[in-house]
Design a protein around this nucleic acid. Structure first.
Lengths: 233, 233
DNA sequence: GCATGCTATTTTGTATACAATTTTGAGTGT
DNA sequence: ACACTCAAAATTGTATACAAAATAGCATGC
């Protein structure tokens, strides 16, 4: 993940806050105050404010006047919407990438696949290594969007992935069906390397739908479980 | 266009600046300083800064550290990218809208069409009335996206339309082929009202491609003209 | 005349002070 | 025990002061 910490405080705070949110260190739904962050990062409130403004525009926090900011909480419906859009954008980006990928691009994609395999093959891996595998898997989609050559498409897709990423850290760790995702990623990269845009796009769209189903099933189960607990008490 | 001027200065400044940029009052490529805007709106620099932060996130201005902000200048390639994404998103949104539109929604769309026709039928209309027609035409797409029910899709589409809108004010006024757009809009609304998602989506995608071709042709002609001038001198 | 270097101005980056508003909690009366 | 009022605390909204950096213009030397 590109850290991109420019030399202004505002950008550092923005990166730091975004990382904390995306990785779930600040859990969704929690309230965050400017003073807390300013104190924690030992800066004044001004750069913190500006960072919050940008995060709000990114959709990662929502703030109401004089009531502070809340880390955006995604419900099932929002995920459904996000994946619906991802199917469109990711599918198209993958088609474009298949037509535009240079040899260097293809090597880069294959290297990322190999890294995933390596991380997956570690015998008794820690959570840190699981996280790494997940992150590389998501980054693969970012890189494909970058290869597509459509800068705006890349930016929008990154925005959605940022918003969806936190569920990875908080939820998806429970799942262990990652082999499917690895295989699908490999197929997509294969199609891109073969220059088969149509197949690559179809595979990408199916892959997004599959991810969506996994996530939605997981969230649904969690919701049911909460309801069960509430009724039992 | 929803003005949405909340009661904080920051939001007012944001709306005001955005309107000035989108309508081309501040032309693309021009430099804008915080002090100028603060003085013009008689507020301090703080809310202006925050507005700029959000606008930068919207992609309407680009700012480099300690060098001020510049209204984003779109070249042909950016428009090509934007329209490529619009074809995806607008097409999908229109499909969804056709499946989801209530009677009230349909009435709203028809009213917007009627307003376009009314404005187009005015005998010797001023620029102001031409602008209005264009704006309603763009708003139609925003409303369709809203009707789709996918909030995130609606937001993203509005973001792209905002970015593309300024060309309308600066360039498209030269064109006079709006009747085509009006007819296409009418066809799309018809398909939505008939609940024919597939046809609505196909029409919407074709409509976006048509708009793209118009805009790109215009920009290309302008570019050629500039080159001609440069060589002649 | 032209390049170079220095200063003066402009402009943003950051911190802090103050105002306005919302929330919270205690206290009182019923 | 409950509701209501009022005040204090917490929190953001705005303004301003100061620091740092970049730009522009002028003077100087060749």
């Amino acid at each position: 993940m590109a850290k991109e910490t420019k030399n202004t405080l505002r950008d550092s705070v923005y990166s730091a806050l975004k990382a904390m949110i995306v990785t779930g260190q600040i859990p969704p739904g929690s309230r965050v105050t400017e003073n807390d962050i300013a104190a924690k990062l030992t800066v004044s409130r001004t750069p913190v404010r500006e960072a919050f403004n940008r995060l709000e525009r990114d959709g990662l926090v929502t703030g109401r006047p004089r009531q502070g900011y809340v880390v955006t909480e995604f419900d099932i419906n929002m995920f459904r919407e996000a994946f619906e859009i991802r199917e469109l954008l990711d599918g198209h980006a993958t088609e474009l990438a298949a037509a535009a990928a240079t040899e260097a691009d293809k090597a880069r994609l294959r290297a990322m696949l190999a890294e995933c395999e390596r991380l997956a093959a570690i015998p008794e891996r820690t959570n840190r290594e699981k996280f790494q595998e997940l992150e590389v898997g998501i980054d693969l989609h970012r890189v494909i969007a970058e290869i597509s050559g459509n800068v705006m498409l890349h930016g929008m897709l990154c925005g959605i992935l940022d918003k969806c990423q936190h569920y990875v850290w908080t939820e998806l760790l429970w799942l262990d069906e990652w082999k499917i995702a690895r295989d699908e990623h490999a197929e997509i990269v294969d199609a891109i390397c073969a220059g088969d845009a149509s197949r690559a796009g179809t595979l990408a769209r199916a892959h997004v739908r599959g991810s969506r189903d996994n996530v939605l099933r997981l969230l649904q189960a969690k919701s049911d479980y909460r309801n069960f607990l509430a009724k039992a008490s």
